[in-house]
């Protein structure tokens, strides 16, 4: 928790001169807190609220709005599969089903060992190389079943 607080403080110090007020700083600070802790439990949101002197409900409202803020723990390897129209036409549903069967989880769930989380997401902006999986911060493009096998093996 000490580390999270440090990350929050560092982010505030670094970014505050670019933002007009503390309310506007909320998004970058939440990202920093999430990077430090992995997800955003109540305590972390409280920490953010205190550091920015904002009411806690305001912070909860913002985190609930954005799907990129995790309200429950995610696995070490977060598989975010795009299922919008371009990816869908190029077989992303099949990729999702393949991952579901292989890992034994549904979208929104995490494997028991805490290694993988599967999420269906909206357009990742890489329609030219559909279907796309974003794993943590990296893109894997034109993904097929065999690619999925390789990726999952590498991560295990």
């Amino acid at each position: 928790m000490k580390q999270v607080q440090n990350a929050i403080d560092a982010e505030i110090d670094k970014k505050k001169r670019f933002y007009p007020n503390k309310e506007a700083l909320l998004l970058p600070v939440l990202h920093a807190a999430q990077r430090a802790y992995g997800w955003l439990p109540h305590d972390v949101m409280e920490m953010v609220a205190k550091s920015l002197e904002l009411p806690l409900p305001k912070v909860k409202q913002v985190t609930s709005f954005y799907t990129m803020f995790y309200k429950k723990p995610v696995g070490e390897c977060h598989l975010q599969v795009c299922n919008n129209i371009a990816c869908y036409l190029r077989g992303s549903s099949d990729v999702i089903h393949y991952i579901e069967n292989k890992l034994g989880i549904l979208p929104g769930e995490t494997t028991k060992d805490g290694l993988f989380t599967l999420t269906e997401v909206e357009c990742l902006g890489s329609c030219g190389t559909a279907p796309v999986i974003q794993i943590n911060d990296d893109y894997f493009e034109s993904v097929s079943r065999s690619d999925v096998d390789k990726i999952l093996e590498a991560k295990q």
């Binding site: 009411p55 806690l56 409900p57 305001k58 909860k60 409202q61 609930s64 709005f65």
Partner: peptide, 18 residues
């Protein structure tokens, strides 16, 4: 007071107290 918020978004928006 700052107890009342809108959680989620779009169709799922719900007005609640935290």
């Amino acid at each position: 007071i700052y107890e009342m918020v809108a959680l989620q978004r779009g169709n799922n928006t719900e007005i609640v107290t935290v």
